[in-house]
Design a binder for these strands. Structure first.
Lengths: 112, 112
DNA sequence: ATTATATGCATAAATAACTTATGTATAAGA
DNA sequence: TCTTATACATAAGTTATTTATGCATATAAT
């Protein structure tokens, strides 16, 4: 996923957020989109992505729809209602995480 | 460590940053400091902390010094020179990670 | 007096998210 | 024809964590 270990745990949040923006996407499209918007900084591996998608589907957060394009099958994923709610939760957690880490990076407590 | 999985991978960075601020700290002190500055949001478990400290020491990023206080032994950790350099790297990675995730949370690309 | 809580360290087993490697298959470009 | 891109999948290995447990001293509460 990246040379930095920090991305561990954030893959699901990334997937959910992309699907919230794009309505429906297929796996390969997700890897390309992430590569594009992060300017190559983040490369999602297939070995991480596909199991993650299957799990999110099994949890009822995503719905799947097969579609044949140019003799190749694509599996389009979209958020369920439950998935939409969970996306909001995950994004709140991400913002909370960022706030917390900002506090640690940029400490006011070092003065006291 | 937290209900959110996002903290996975950031423990080492947190430890290094705290030691950069405080010069020397012992394990229990680190858990309390993190609890304090994050207002209880983040609780580092001992099962994660102590192995992490041992590993950072084995990698030559930390030096240890035992000290007896009130009949109890404390193990004070401080950054080595190598550790100080590595701390700077880890903090850069954290900032890069945060920037990347901000980009995903706050997308301009959804318009295009 | 005794029990719980706080302080302080440690490790072992289980879990979960990933990486790495491999596999299948079609299409397009060099 | 060989490589790259597209598109899916899974299995084995790695690693950072959680959960559980253990030892030991000090202090506060019942």
């Amino acid at each position: 996923m990246s040379n930095s270990k920090l991305y561990k745990g954030s893959l699901n949040t990334i997937i959910l957020k992309l699907l919230e923006e794009s309505d429906k996407m297929y796996g390969y499209e997700i890897t390309q989109k992430v590569k594009e918007i992060t300017k190559g900084e983040l490369n999602i591996t297939e070995g991480a992505l596909y199991p993650a998608l299957h799990k999110l589907e099994a949890e009822g957060l995503l719905d799947v729809e097969m579609q044949k394009v140019d003799n190749r099958v694509r599996k389009y994923y979209k958020l369920t209602e439950k998935g939409t709610k969970e996306t909001a939760n995950r994004l709140s957690e991400l913002e909370e995480y960022i706030r917390t880490m900002q506090t640690i990076i940029n400490p006011k407590w070092s003065i006291s």
